[in-house]
Simulated assay, not measured.
Amino acid sequence: MKDVLKRFPVRRGMVLSISVLAVLAALTLTAAMVRADSSAPKTVGSKPVLTVRMIQPKSMEWAQTMTANGNILPWQESSIGTEMGGLRLTQLNAAIGDQVKKGQVLARYNDATIQAEVAQAKAALAETEAALGEAQQNANRVRQLGNTGAMSEQQKTEAFTKEMMAKARVQSAKAQLASAQVRLAQTRIVAPDDGVISARSASLGAVSQPGQELFRLVRQGRLEWQAEVTAAESAKIQPGQSVSLGLPTGKTVVGTVRNIAPTVDLKTRNVLVFVDLKPDGDPLVAAKPGMFAKGQIALGKSKALALPGSAILLRDGFANVFVLQTDNKVKQVRVKLGRQANGMMEVEGLAPTTAVVASGAGFLADGDVVRVVK
């Protein structure tokens, strides 16, 4: 009041009226109230910042999978070679990539010499069979005479011995003929099983060497994926589990676990899992031996809590949700994400009855007040 009066100095002989003093008093009171209001702490309003809908985590059955890497290799690869030496290759009937059937002729060698050996063996067999017939007739006459005394014991023994020797010569001739026929069959290189030719080292006109490899065959066109897993992971894998394999070409091939290696590799400390692949269409088209691929091994199903993706807020590299508390306030809670499927995400760190903001989490902050609608 004194400050206000100083602004209006009273001159000598001048008297302030009562009304002026009243106005000055009102102004002073108003200024004091303004100063008091400005110095008082402000209170946060309780107006909702967002209208939200609440949901609870949903219990779902999730497929448990294990990720592994490995190589695609033939199930079995046969080495097709020749057992003969010194013969010239005169015919080639198969190339790399050809699908062949069991018994199909892949190559032929010059068999003129072997054909001559077969003919010679047949002639020798005919000769020994004729000698056997004569010996058997003589032996039969000796048997008819019996003990009449017309022949001595020495003559009888000689007749029976010739018969036995003739039979032995026949057996020997048959064996020689069979051997020549086997050699003749070896001049034809045939496929030992159905499959796909994966390699060919044979060249037309080359002279063979015993044991020389001519072709390599992927038996039945079957491929396998040899996945590497840790020893702890191998305990979760069982034969018969399904596998989904992503190929470098972008295609997907399914398979089935056939076997798990009984030992651990000393170098990698990993266990090999053998998976039979079932490519669609022609074999060795989608998947090829030597490919490196990543796959998912299905381990079974388990229950877990899940939320829609709209309820998850990714902030600073972490997953968060907003849960409802008293007075319609929300609290930011960090969760751990797991598997994802059909727009749902597996979450860990929430109770099944927790009320979670369904959408709009990006517009909220910790402690905000919301309006909840059903």
Rank of each mutant, 00 (worst) to 15 (best):
A168T: 14
I189E: 00
F160I: 13
L272R: 15
A139C: 06
Q136C: 07
Q212A: 06
A36T: 12
V356R: 05
A95L: 09
L284F: 01
V254F: 04
A22E: 04
L132P: 01
R143D: 02
R141V: 13
M291V: 02
N320C: 08
G246N: 09
M151Q: 08
V49S: 08
V190K: 11
Q186F: 06
A232S: 15
L324R: 08
S203P: 09
D280A: 08
R371T: 08
L29G: 15
A232K: 09
A341M: 14
K102Y: 00
L307Q: 03
R88C: 05
V254N: 14
T161N: 06
I18L: 10
L350D: 04
N147C: 08
A341P: 08
R339T: 15
G250W: 02
V243W: 00
D327N: 09
A32K: 07
V142L: 13
E83S: 05
F8G: 07
Q212W: 00
G343H: 04
G367D: 05
T230M: 05
P308K: 02
V15A: 14
M84A: 03
K174F: 01
Q171H: 01
D98Q: 06
Q238R: 09
D316L: 01
L50G: 08
Q241I: 05
G205K: 05
Q115T: 14
V321K: 05
Q220T: 10
R53S: 11
A231G: 05
T326D: 11
T252L: 06
A365K: 13
G211F: 00
T263C: 05
R183G: 04
E127D: 10
R141P: 11
G240E: 00
E83I: 04
N140P: 04
R339A: 15
A131P: 00
G13A: 03
I189L: 08
G250D: 07
I114G: 02
A159D: 05
T161R: 03
G362L: 14
N320A: 09
K303T: 15
D193H: 13
E153Q: 15
V142Q: 10
